[in-house]
C-alpha cells in the first residue's frame, strides 16, 4: 500500500466511524429504535390494525420473542463470521505481499 493510499484508507474508516457516532451524541433525546419498526408503525397507520400472518420460525419454536440479549448475541455471531473471514484473507494477502517484496529484494542482491 502506498503512503497516499494508506492515508485515504485511514481517513475513510475514520469518517465512517464519525458519521456513525455523531448522531448518538448530537441527539440526546432520540431512542434509536429500528427504522423497520417505524415501517410497521406506518403499515398500521395506513391499514389500521395489522396482525402479521406469519411469525418467525425461531419465535414459533421458542414460543416467544427472541430475548434481546440473545438477539444481540446472534447479530454478534453474524458480525464475527464476517470479520473472521475478512480478517483471515486480509492478513493472508498482506503477508503474501510482504513475502513477495522480501523475495524481490533478496533476488536483487
Amino acid at each position: 500500500m502506498e503512503k497516499k493510499q494508506k492515508k485515504i484508507f485511514i481517513a475513510l474508516i475514520l469518517a465512517s466511524v464519525l458519521i456513525a457516532v455523531v448522531p448518538l451524541f448530537a441527539l440526546k433525546e432520540a431512542k434509536f429504535g429500528g427504522s423497520d419498526d417505524a415501517g410497521s408503525v406506518m403499515v398500521e397507520e395506513i391499514q389500521g390494525e395489522y396482525t402479521p400472518w406469519f411469525t418467525p420460525v425461531l419465535e414459533t419454536m421458542l414460543n416467544r420473542e427472541i430475548p434481546g440479549e440473545v438477539e444481540s448475541l446472534i447479530f454478534c455471531v453474524q458480525t464475527g463470521i464476517g470479520v473472521g473471514i475478512l480478517a483471515f484473507y486480509m492478513g493472508r494477502l498482506y503477508e503474501r505481499n510482504k513475502r513477495n517484496k522480501e523475495q524481490k529484494s533478496y533476488d536483487h542482491h
Partner: peptide, 27 residues
C-alpha cells in the same frame, strides 16, 4: 474464491451493524 468469500463476508459484517442515524433511529 478469495475475493468471493471476502465480498460475502463484507455483506455479513456490514449488514449486521446497526448504526444510529441523524433521524434518531437505527438502521
Amino acid at each position: 474464491i478469495t475475493l468471493l468469500a471476502m465480498s460475502g463476508a463484507f455483506i455479513f459484517v456490514i449488514s449486521s451493524l446497526k448504526i444510529p442515524s441523524v433521524t434518531g433511529s437505527c438502521s
